[in-house]
Simulated assay, not measured.
Amino acid sequence: MNHRDEMYDDKVPDMIDNAYVIVEFRSGRRASLDLCMFADGAYWQEEFSAVGDKGKIECFVPGASRHWPGRGERQAEVVVSRREPKGPARRTVEVDEHLLILGAHHGSTYFEHLGFQQSVLEGANVRVTVEDGLKAVVIGLAAEQSIRERRVIQIEGLSLH
């Protein structure tokens, strides 16, 4: 859907802008990604969840206000649903309007840059390492190969936990 009207070196970009990806780790854990980069009108632009033996946590990030004209800025939400006691606990995540203007993804880009600045200028520990980035790229490349070749891709020699 995206970038089809663009040309680079006389070629249309081959970006994959929608996908379902499942990663199965050697430990038996699984991760999945449901990606759609053209559904800008959805109430939640991004939804993240983690499920484990103690329950589930969900994070909901609203789309930018430019996608919701006249409706004002909405806040992110976190929902924690424990197995015991049962029932969800919902809380709103307030984000300063200035940060919403500075970065994408409901201000998170700002915090990524702030963390990078603190590690460079103050020697703070990095939150995401080069190794983390390498693993993400390898998984992304394997996902693209899987989509193009319509088959499961095995990743060997990369310690994924």
Score class of each variant (00 low, 15 high):
residue 54 K to R: 15
residue 134 L to N: 09
residue 116 F to Y: 06
residue 19 A to C: 09
residue 147 I to N: 01
residue 92 T to C: 08
residue 26 R to H: 13
residue 117 Q to D: 08
residue 48 F to S: 12
residue 53 D to I: 14
residue 2 N to D: 08
residue 136 A to K: 08
residue 30 R to K: 15
residue 33 L to C: 14
residue 21 V to M: 04
residue 52 G to Q: 10
residue 108 S to Q: 02
residue 136 A to M: 11
residue 87 G to N: 06
residue 93 V to I: 15
residue 119 S to A: 14
residue 150 R to D: 11
residue 152 V to H: 07
residue 28 G to D: 04
residue 84 E to Y: 09
residue 127 R to Y: 05
residue 62 P to K: 01
residue 44 W to H: 10
residue 126 V to Q: 11
residue 27 S to R: 07
residue 88 P to I: 03
residue 92 T to K: 10
residue 120 V to L: 03
residue 81 S to W: 01
residue 57 I to Y: 01
residue 67 H to L: 06
residue 92 T to I: 14
residue 109 T to E: 06
residue 1 M to G: 13
residue 93 V to D: 03
residue 9 D to A: 15
residue 5 D to W: 08
residue 94 E to A: 09
residue 67 H to R: 07
residue 65 S to A: 13
residue 62 P to I: 00
residue 7 M to Q: 15
residue 123 G to Y: 02
residue 102 L to D: 12
residue 26 R to T: 13
residue 91 R to E: 11
residue 12 V to W: 03
residue 130 V to E: 14
residue 85 P to A: 04
residue 146 S to C: 04
residue 143 A to G: 02
residue 157 G to Q: 05
residue 51 V to H: 10
residue 71 R to N: 06
residue 38 F to I: 05
residue 130 V to Q: 12
residue 151 R to H: 03
residue 161 H to C: 09
residue 22 I to M: 07
residue 123 G to E: 02
residue 62 P to F: 00
residue 47 E to W: 05
residue 90 R to D: 02
residue 152 V to F: 01
residue 30 R to N: 07
residue 123 G to C: 05
residue 97 E to P: 10
residue 44 W to R: 06
residue 12 V to P: 05
residue 43 Y to S: 11
residue 15 M to K: 12
residue 126 V to S: 05
residue 71 R to S: 07
residue 78 V to S: 01
residue 70 G to W: 02
residue 103 G to L: 01
residue 121 L to H: 09
residue 84 E to G: 08
residue 161 H to V: 11
residue 102 L to A: 14
residue 89 A to M: 15
residue 110 Y to Q: 03
residue 67 H to V: 06
residue 54 K to P: 02
residue 156 E to W: 00
residue 115 G to C: 12
residue 83 R to D: 12
residue 130 V to R: 12
residue 37 M to G: 13
residue 25 F to M: 15
residue 6 E to K: 15
residue 4 R to W: 04
residue 73 E to N: 10
residue 75 Q to D: 13
residue 53 D to K: 15
residue 136 A to N: 07
residue 56 K to E: 14
residue 113 H to W: 07
residue 61 V to N: 00
residue 36 C to S: 14
residue 82 R to N: 13
residue 73 E to P: 02
residue 24 E to D: 15
residue 67 H to S: 05
residue 137 V to S: 06
residue 47 E to L: 13
residue 27 S to M: 04
residue 2 N to C: 10
residue 88 P to H: 06
residue 57 I to R: 03
residue 95 V to F: 00
residue 22 I to D: 04
